[in-house]
Design a protein around this nucleic acid. Structure first.
Length: 567
RNA sequence: GGCCCUAUCGUCUAGUCCGGUCUAGGACACCUCCCUUUCACGGAGGUAACAGGGGUUCGAAUCCCCUUAGGGUCACCA
C-alpha cells in the first residue's frame, strides 16, 4: 500500500515545551559519555517544563538482547535522571518511570511503523532498491581506501531497468533500500556548532533498510523522532555528519526538522577513547606485574584464565573482571556509571562533575546539584571542544561531598554500599562495630568504598592476622629507645586494666603512658600498637581502632605481635 | 586522504559574541611550609596558559587570513 493518509501526521502543533530524547543502543552498562548526554537532554527538557524520552535503538539484530538493553536503566535511575516516556522501570523507591503515549520505545517493536514510511519514500522516488552484495561493496570500498579517495556508493542500482528490479524483487534477490540523496549542499543549523554547510557529494545514497528488513539507524531515528514529537536532538558530536542524512530524510518525508545540538566528546586524560578495553588492559597489567600463572580461588576457572592471558583480544565480562580485580586488589579504571558506583562515588557528585565536562555554569561556580543543572543548563555555554575526563578532580569533589555530609548520613550510605558490594565484610561486624568504624572513617574517606578496602584487618581472624613486611612496620616495631616492641610490652598491662573499653577510656590510658614514658609523644606508642593490632601502619585513629576491634581481640593481637617479632 | 569542527595553565574551564576594567580569574593536580598518633582532612603560600605567523585597530586572548596541531566522519553499527 502506498497511501499515506492513515499515517500519523507530522508534529506541527506548536507547543513551546521542548521534548528531548536519549536514544542509546542496547547495552547492559551506561557509559559516562552516554550519561552526560542523557543528563543534558534531561536538564534541557525538564528545566523548560518539557518532556524527556528514552528510546532503545535496537535495530541491529546481532547486538540486541532484551535483558541487556534494560541493564542501564538502573544506572540512569541511580543518577536521578528520570525519564517521562520510555521503557517502564520500577525504581528501588517504588516509583515507576517510563511508559507514555508514543510507544513502543524499543525500535525492534516498531518495525511495522517504518515500513509505511518506506513505501512512501519509494513511491515518491526518494528511495530505491539496491541488490549489490556486501562483498561487492566491500571490494569497491577497499579500492577507494587504497586510492585514498572517500568511498561513495556509485548508484549502480539506479542503472537497473524497472523490469530488472521487478524480476529481482519477484525472485527474492536480497535487497536493501537506499535513500536517493538530492544533489546540492546540505546546511545544518546547530545550536552549539553554528550553521555548517556540507558540500555537495559528501552524503551518498545511504541504506535505510537492511537485507534483514530492519530499518537502519538513520531511518528509524528520523521516523521515531517525528512520531515521538521530539523537538530537540542533543547528542554526541560523532553524530554530526549523520545529521545531514537525517535532514535529507526529513525533507523527503515532509517532517519538521528538530533543533540540533552536538555535544563535545569525552576522552581519557591521555586523549584516548574511554572504552571498556581500558579495564581489561589495567587488569592484564596488574596480573602480569604480579607474575601470576593461576587465578586466585573463587574468581575464574583456570582454563578461562589461560585463554584470557593468552589472547589479548579476549575480554572478560564485567562481573568476572571485577571479581578478579577485587581478589588481586587492583583498581580498574571506571568507565561505566556502575563502575563509579562500585568505586563509591555519589550520584550527585557524578552528575555534577559530568556537567562540568563540556558545559560550565559561569562565574567560577563548579559545585552544584541536579536541581541547579536542571534550572540553569543551556546550550550557549556548551563547549565545542572535547573534554578529558579527570578522575582526580572527580575524586576530590567526592571527598568534599562526603566530608561535608552529616556523619549519620555517611554511615547510612556506607552501609548501603557495603550491602551491595561487600556483604561478607559487613557480615563479620556487629552494627555497632560498623557504626564506629564508619564514624571514625568519615572525615578521611574519599569514597564510600574506601573503608572496605583499607580496613581488612578488622575482618580477619585474630589468629590469622599477618604483619606486613615493610619498612614502616619495622620502624614502628624495632626502632627507637626503647624499641616499639618494648613499649608495646609496657603498655599492654595498662590496656588490660581498662574497664570500660571506649575510645575515651583507651585514650586516657594510652595518653597517660605517653606522658609518663614518651615525653608526651603519642606516636611512639600509637604506631607500635597500630602495627600490633592491624598488621600495618595505616588505620583510623588508634583509640578508635582499638575500640572497634574490642578488648579481647586487641590484647590477643598484641600478644601475638610480641611473639611474632620475638621478645 | 576528502569533508567538517576546534584551539586559554598538565586537566576542567572563566573571559571571546558587544575589542580597552586581563601584568588573563577559579577549580583539580603539582611544589613549599604549617597542623598532626598513621593515613587522610585542614590552613598559608607558590609554579603554571591566550599554539605560531601575518593583518585590522590608538589598542586584540577577544575581529579577519594563513600555518600548525587536535578531534569527528567517510558501514546493510548505532
Amino acid at each position: 500500500m502506498t497511501s499515506t493518509s492513515n499515517l500519523p501526521v507530522s508534529g506541527s502543533s506548536a507547543t513551546s515545551a521542548p521534548l528531548t530524547r536519549f536514544a542509546p543502543s542496547p547495552s547492559g552498562h551506561l557509559h559516562v559519555g552516554g550519561a552526560r548526554t542523557a543528563l543534558f537532554c534531561w536538564a534541557y527538557a525538564k528545566g523548560r517544563g518539557g518532556t524527556f524520552t528514552l528510546r532503545i535503538e535496537d535495530t541491529d539484530q546481532k547486538r540486541s538482547s532484551d535483558a541487556a538493553s534494560v541493564g542501564f536503566l538502573k544506572d540512569l535511575a541511580w543518577l536521578g535522571i528520570d525519564w517521562d516516556e520510555g521503557p517502564e522501570y520500577v525504581g528501588s523507591d517504588g516509583r515507576t518511570l517510563g511508559g507514555g503515549p508514543h510507544g513502543p520505545y524499543f525500535q525492534s517493536e516498531r518495525l511495522g511503523i517504518y515500513n509505511g514510511y518506506l513505501d512512501q519514500l519509494i513511491a515518491g522516488g526518494h528511495a530505491y532498491y539496491a541488490f549489490d552484495t556486501s562483498e561487492a561493496l566491500d571490494v569497491k570500498r577497499k579500492a577507494s581506501i587504497a586510492a585514498k579517495v572517500p568511498y561513495r556508493y556509485d548508484r549502480s542500482a539506479l542503472q537497473l531497468t524497472k523490469d530488472e528490479v521487478a524480476i529481482h524483487l519477484k525472485t527474492g534477490t536480497p535487497a536493501v533500500v537506499r535513500c536517493k540523496v538530492p544533489s546540492g549542499p546540505i546546511t545544518i543549523h546547530d545550536e552549539i556548532l553554528g550553521t555548517v554547510t556540507l558540500p555537495e557529494g559528501e552524503v551518498d545514497d545511504f541504506v535505510i533498510r537492511k537485507v534483514d528488513g530492519f530499518p537502519t539507524y538513520h531511518f528509524a531515528v528520523v521516523v521515531d523522532d517525528e512520531l515521538m514529537r521530539v523537538t530537540h536532538v542533543l547528542r554526541a558530536q560523532e553524530h554530526f555528519t549523520n545529521t545531514a542524512k537525517h535532514i535529507v530524510l526529513q525533507d523527503a518525508l515532509g517532517f519538521k526538522r528538530p533543533t540540533y545540538g552536538h555535544l563535545p566528546l569525552i576522552f581519557n586524560t591521555d586523549g584516548s577513547k574511554m572504552s571498556k578495553r581500558d579495564k581489561d588492559k589495567a587488569l592484564r597489567a596488574g596480573v602480569t606485574a604480579k607474575g601470576m600463572t593461576a587465578p586466585p580461588p573463587n574468581t575464574i576457572a583456570q582454563a578461562q584464565f589461560d585463554v584470557w592471558m593468552k589472547d589479548k583480544n579476549v575480554q572478560l565480562d564485567f562481573d568476572v573482571a571485577n571479581r578478579l580485580a577485587d581478589a588481586l586488589d587492583i583498581v580498574l579504571p571506571e568507565i561505566n556509571v556502575d563502575d563509579f558506583r562500585r568505586s563509591g562515588y555519589l550520584p550527585s557528585v557524578l552528575t555534577n562533575f559530568l556537567a562540568l565536562n563540556g558545559w560550565s555554569a559561569g562565574n567560577d561556580l563548579e559545585k552544584f546539584d541536579l536541581a541547579y543543572i536542571k534550572s540553569h543548563f543551556n546550550l550557549d555555554r556548551v563547549q565545542k571542544t572535547p573534554a578529558k575526563f579527570d578522575r582526580m578532580k572527580l575524586l576530590s569533589f567526592n571527598c568534599d561531598a562526603i566530608t561535608s555530609m552529616p556523619r549519620e548520613e555517611f554511615v547510612r550510605l556506607c552501609r548501603a554500599h557495603g550491602k551491595l558490594y561487600h556483604p561478607e565484610f559487613l557480615g563479620r561486624l556487629t552494627d555497632e562495630q560498623f557504626a564506629m568504624l564508619a564514624s571514625a572513617s568519615h572525615e578521611r574517606s574519599k569514597t564510600l568504598d574506601e573503608l572496605y578496602r583499607t580496613n581488612r584487618w578488622l575482618v580477619v581472624g585474630d589468629d590469622s592476622l599477618a604483619w606486613e613486611d615493610s619498612k614502616n612496620v619495622k620502624k614502628a616495631i624495632a626502632e627507637g629507645t626503647p624499641r616499639g616492641l618494648d613499649r608495646l610490652r609496657e603498655v599492654k598491662p595498662l590496656l588490660e586494666s581498662v574497664v570500660s573499653w571506649t575510645p575515651h577510656e583507651i585514650e586516657a590510658s594510652i595518653k597517660g603512658y605517653a606522658d609518663a614514658s614518651c615525653e608526651g609523644q603519642l606516636g611512639k606508642v600509637a604506631q607500635p600498637l597500630r602495627v600490633a593490632v592491624t598488621g600495618g601502619t595505616v588505620s583510623p585513629p588508634i583509640f578508635d581502632t582499638l575500640a572497634i576491634l574490642g578488648k579481647p581481640s586487641s590484647l590477643l593481637r598484641i600478644d601475638r605481635c610480641l611473639k611474632h617479632f620475638g621478645g
